[in-house]
Amino acid sequence: MMNQSDSNHPYLESLLAYVLQYGSWAASATIGVGLALSLISAHAPPFSAMKIVTVGLALFILLPVFRVFIMFVVFLNDRDYKFSAIAALVLAILALGVVVGLRAAKMVAG
């Protein structure tokens, strides 16, 4: 009989559920506020309205990254070095994505 608790992490699972749930609400609310501002003043949109929307979009992109970071820390804390290394590798790949995007932006600009 295999050890059934092998891949269950009750604490980590509820922590991730909490972070992702509230993070999603925060990002959605930010986008909502920005959009509402831009709709209210449709003829002369305030400079900051779309900036607020952009912050909300960035929050959504960062939320899963933060989730991987939490997994990295919890695995490290559990001395599960193999899995903290895997989480670190995913974080490195996510960072690589940002670098790829920045280089593409420079190529377009230059």
Binding site: P64, V65, R67, I93, V98, V100, G101, A104, V108
Partner: peptide, 15 residues
């Protein structure tokens, strides 16, 4: 979520 964040991060930076 993480998969889309990898590409969305790049597209965000690219504009």
């Amino acid at each position: 979520g993480v998969t889309a964040a990898a590409s969305a991060g790049a597209y965000f930076m690219r504009g």
